[in-house]
């Protein structure tokens, strides 16, 4: 069996607030193998972004607490020093963000921001060599006139171009893992497709594993091999893309898939899951999805379900499958 490049075990991230300790990510476990694309799906506020920031060690240290294990090639990053984390960030685990418009520093040229990313982790490299690499990388992410671009400022670029620059900046040190936090959400649809295509291409060419955080099942279908579905800070279902789309098991996953518009069917209204994601701090007892779930029965409101393996490929956290034997599909 392949050892995963990143193995997150029972990650628990909490924030100190005026109302006490709020747990936003609750015992989340998942793993990514080298070169794999894993999707983390969920509504806004379910803890996807905090999960990714916890992996990077970028949650504010003074006001939060990260428990559990984040094993990167066997090394627990949750216990790593800030100095070690600086070496990991950008060099081994890189990250791109949702907002390409504001994620680049407006006062520095594209080139200087790219070169900085290289030279932070490779101090021996001369400016000239770094510049060379920056230009090569910009060409690689499909940006035209890369030689001029490195002297331009972010405000001179469109959103799609800036996201390409962000990807170039993240990929320039050849990281083992790229965490993409909603990388296409702020872009329009045609650009979204291009950016996904680019990420797919880079994933195939470089063997960099991608952790794709999204609320968009279309993105998952397009690029991911496996999916983790999160709800209210917990993993509710996990499986291969195929199994999740063909046989969604958790009522929440079913709801998510149902709410994707289908071009072939004429429906009056789009399906939506009733209610809202509960706020951390006011989570219901028992299954956290139960108040919104049409299948909920008595047990769901009292006892918290565990993550049960339905097959080798699929796990689900739901009482509906309590009695089901593990069937090998």
């Amino acid at each position: 069996m392949v050892t995963p490049v990143l193995d997150v075990k029972k990650l628990k991230t909490s924030f100190f607030t005026d109302d006490g300790l709020l747990t936003v990510v609750n015992e989340v476990s998942f793993h990514i193998n080298a070169g794999e694309v894993l999707g983390i799906v969920g509504e806004s506020g379910c803890g996807k972004s905090v999960t990714s920031l916890s992996v990077m060690g970028l949650v504010p240290a003074l006001t939060s607490k990260v428990e559990g294990e984040i094993l990167y090639k066997g090394e627990n990053l949750a216990q790593a020093s800030e100095k070690r984390m600086r070496q990991v960030r950008g060099n081994e685990i890189a990250m791109i963000f949702q907002e390409p418009m504001t994620s680049l520093n407006p006062l520095f040229t594209i080139g200087s921001q790219l070169m900085e990313a290289i030279r932070l982790h490779n101090k021996k490299l001369s400016k000239k060599e770094a510049k060379q690499q920056a230009v090569t990388m910009l060409k690689k992410v499909g940006l035209p006139r890369a030689d001029e671009l490195i002297n331009e400022y972010p405000h001179q670029l469109s959103g799609g171009m800036r996201q390409r620059v962000m990807i170039a900046m993240a990929m320039i040190c050849n990281p083992q893992i790229l965490i993409a936090d909603e990388p296409t959400t702020a872009l329009d649809v045609t650009i979204q497709a291009q950016i996904l295509e680019l990420m797919k291409k880079l994933n195939e060419e470089t063997d960099t594993a991608i952790l794709m955080i999204t609320h968009d099942l279309g993105v998952v279908a397009e690029i991911c091999q496996r999916v983790v579905v999160m709800y209210a800070g917990k993993v509710v279902e996990e499986g291969t893309v195929e199994s999740i789309f063909k046989k969604p098991s958790h009522p929440y996953t079913k709801g998510l898939i149902q709410s994707v518009p289908d071009m072939r069917q004429k429906k009056e209204r789009l399906f939506s899951i009733p209610g809202n994601v509960p706020k951390p701090g006011s989570l219901p007892i028992g299954c956290q999805f139960a108040p919104r779930c049409s299948y909920a029965h008595e047990k769901c409101l009292k006892e918290t379900p565990y993550l049960k393996a339905l097959s080798i490929e699929q796990k689900v956290r739901c009482w509906l499958y309590e009695d089901e034997k593990e069937s090998i599909v």
Binding site: R86, V88, R89, G90, F97, T102, P106, A117, L120
Partner: peptide
């Protein structure tokens, strides 16, 4: 701001 998060994510 976001670009400060980016700078930190670079390992600065």
């Amino acid at each position: 701001s976001d670009y400060i998060r980016t700078a930190r994510a670079k390992g600065m």
